[in-house]
Nucleic acid binder design. Structure first.
Lengths: 255, 255
DNA sequence: GCCCCGGACCAGTATAGACAAGCTGGGCAG
DNA sequence: CTGCCCAGCTTGTCTATACTGGTCCGGGGC
């Protein structure tokens, strides 16, 4: 059986990609070897990863080195190992760390999937009473507004509805959101000082439901985020995630 | 065919404390050896931990085994290692984590409302395959189970479904939950070391919906929590909150 | 007094060899 | 055909040994 069809596998000598930094430790090179194949699509979720012995042969490393690489990837949740059967690419349940203000594009790419964004609305508007209160500006003050849908592959993973204070982060609407996410733009223009989050569950209104391509009655996770820069509110964001395809992960421990 | 030929490797002298389970892997025994000394106060925060070579001598293990134990404890944040200097017990700084492991009774009372609890089910059961996996115990091992509803005034605010490992937190079922919440009991009996959370949104099944007195089709927030004590899983908890009446707050301060 | 160098000790990494235990599939006996 | 066992794969673990580079300290040369 062609266990491992070995599309490349130059067998003996320089089996490790020369693009890798030789300075890195061997076990890290092996980890990258696996991660690159996952990111590149050569290895997909559920598929079998070369066994320790196979790696020993194809990469010319000792079994302990291959073992450490696979074991650490398993500890990270990238791989799943079953004694006597093999090592497999983990089914990726979507994860995010609520404590960190993360970039959803990075998150998606880190899982080896294609990131796409659809710009639904870009606008400048004047603050309602409620918005003004949350931004601590005067009612009627100008605010930038964006409504985007972020896709993982072809599936919407987040609807991002965002208000930005142009006094704190000027030029928001001139940003090319297909190249720079709101998050990336904001941390560049208005260094993040602090962020507040609230998380709740709801069955979304039709507008959000359509953008997330949800069935009627499906739940979604709403993360409301308020970010501060230079002591002022830089932006308010409502992040909607499909309840069935998204979960927040958090480890609670002094690291 | 030496399947059951030798139940354990009798090759090595019994240098490790006999209180430790002999079935456990050596590197786990070394980890427990360190953790016990930290828990017992023999090793305090900032103090130096025996070096790999010292452990090799005193515990009669190979250096690779000691290395793995120390490396994993460092990865868990228990130890801090500095090449060329040594290994030290990490300073346990107080963490204001967004998803702090909080006591719901305190939370409700802090808002000036009356806290009440209804015990739905208390039971001892044997671990299913899936539970055993998440607890890292053998399938069939005894687990304690509780299902409670926490009320704010007359309104249910949380359904708490919890599994507890009696090996780590004995006497759970004998606790009077009308006076001591599971959380209070557990932090007293099994000092919290670490907690993992995942948060998701869903439309609950009928059982949960009834306990929370929700309308059909209402969303709820599910917080799945896994707590660790002494390096072992102490408990699994599924915390269901009504989406309309509950939100999770999280503040994020970059260091 | 200051600087440099070497030795001691440390973690980090790599290798080879070994045994244990779990799973799967094929072959064999009934 | 059914049931069982076993070969052969897998991961999991442990040991012994070796070399590297970082840190610290003390001693000797300047």
């Amino acid at each position: 059986m062609p266990r491992f069809a070995s599309p490349d596998a130059g067998t003996h000598p320089e089996a490790l990609p020369v693009t890798l930094q030789q300075a890195a430790a061997r076990y890290l090179q092996v980890k990258h070897f696996i991660l690159e194949r996952i990111a590149g699509g050569t290895l997909r979720a559920g598929e079998r990863v070369p066994s320790e012995n196979e790696l020993t042969r194809t990469l010319t490393v000792s079994r302990m080195t291959a073992n450490r690489a696979l074991r650490e990837l398993a500890a990270d949740g990238v791989l799943v190992r079953v004694a006597g059967v093999g090592t497999f690419v983990a089914e990726q349940r979507v994860h995010a760390h609520p404590l960190e203000v993360r970039n959803i594009a990075d998150e998606i790419r880190a899982r080896g999937h294609e990131y796409r964004v659809k710009v639904v609305t870009l606008d400048s508007l004047s603050a309602t009473r409620e918005l003004a209160e949350r931004f601590a500006v005067k009612p009627g003050a100008a605010l930038d507004y964006s409504l985007l849908t972020h896709f993982e592959g072809g599936t919407p993973l987040q609807v991002e509805e965002r208000y930005v204070n142009p006094q704190v982060a000027p030029g928001y609407l001139r940003n090319d959101f297909t190249r720079t996410t709101p998050h990336e733009f904001l941390i560049r223009v208005a260094p993040l000082q602090r962020a507040e989050h609230t998380v709740r569950a709801l069955v979304p209104e039709r507008r959000i439901r359509r953008l997330l391509k949800l069935e009627a009655g499906e739940a979604c996770l709403l993360i409301k985020r308020r970010t501060f820069s230079q002591g002022r509110v830089a932006s308010l964001a409502d992040l909607y995630h499909p309840g069935s395809r998204y979960e927040l992960a958090a480890n609670c421990q002094p690291r």
